[in-house]
């Protein structure tokens, strides 16, 4: 079927949608996605001037560390426990996995501190903050099951220490920290998937609402956000200066 531009729905900003197709869920979903995150907002060329601060760097540092965690985790999964326990290269990649996790948490917590003291939930950014908190909690669970998957005395100690705490919550019936196979599956399948999805939504929300401006630029009396801006009016006013 060819697309006739004269038959396109005039109410939508997307080219290529036939009027009779406008009610289809695919068209609606596509429209909603483009409305929420137009390409120039999803991948902007410039950021507001106030983003030129080291405190704003820690979000992307966290993402970079997460990328190293995932890649090294995949290498460990490919090569297997004997490799990471015995061979020098395996030791090295195992250590990379550990220290990228340590870096991930350190950067994430500094990012959290910066976001907290900037009240980063301002300007309709509540969901961004909430998904950031969920990402933190899911990451704690992933790291915890990682410690249980080490196959050494450390993991045995942590498992036996943790079982009573977990059992006291009632979760022990379905989440047995002494069950190595179950913890390994949680660590390499379920929790990384959860962290990936939550972090992905968090980043998309940051792109949708823009980076929170400093308090001085977000005082009452500032004009409302213009349509299509990536953040507050103040940020839009100085956008392009960074």
């Amino acid at each position: 079927m060819t697309v006739d531009s004269e038959r396109e729905s005039p109410t939508r900003n997307l080219p290529g949608i036939l009027e009779e197709d406008a009610e289809q869920w695919t068209a609606k979903l596509r429209n909603a996605a483009i409305d929420a995150l137009p390409p120039q907002r999803l991948m902007p060329d410039r950021q507001p001037a106030y983003v030129a601060s080291w405190i704003y760097v820690f979000g992307v540092l966290t993402l970079a560390a997460l990328a190293v965690v995932i890649v090294t985790g995949m290498v460990l999964a490919i090569m297997g426990p004997t490799w990471w326990h015995v061979s020098p290269v395996g030791h090295f990649v195992n250590s990379l996995h550990l220290w990228s996790v340590e870096s991930f948490f350190a950067f994430m917590v500094v990012h959290l501190w910066g976001s907290f003291f900037m009240a980063a939930w301002r300007g309709k950014r509540r969901l961004t903050w909430v998904f950031g908190a969920f990402a933190f909690l899911a990451s704690v669970g992933t790291a915890f099951t990682g410690y249980l998957s080490q196959q050494n005395f450390d993991s045995q100690w942590i498992g036996t220490q943790a079982k009573d705490g977990i059992n006291s919550t009632g979760a022990g019936a379905v989440f047995n920290v002494l069950n190595f196979g179950q913890m390994l599956m949680w660590h390499i399948v379920l929790l990384p998937l959860a962290v990936g999805v939550i972090v992905g939504v968090h980043v998309l929300l940051v792109r949708r609402r823009g980076v929170v401006p400093p308090f001085a630029l977000d005082e009452p009396g500032a004009p409302d956000d213009p349509p299509g801006s990536s953040g507050t009016a103040a940020s839009a006013a100085i956008e392009g200066e960074a």
Partner: peptide, 20 residues
């Protein structure tokens, strides 16, 4: 020590100007 380093990083990130 790690927590101390993180606090130092946080304060430094606020105080040190970002070179543009």
């Amino acid at each position: 020590v790690v927590i101390g380093i993180m606090i130092v990083l946080f304060v430094a990130a606020i105080l040190i100007p970002y070179r543009r």
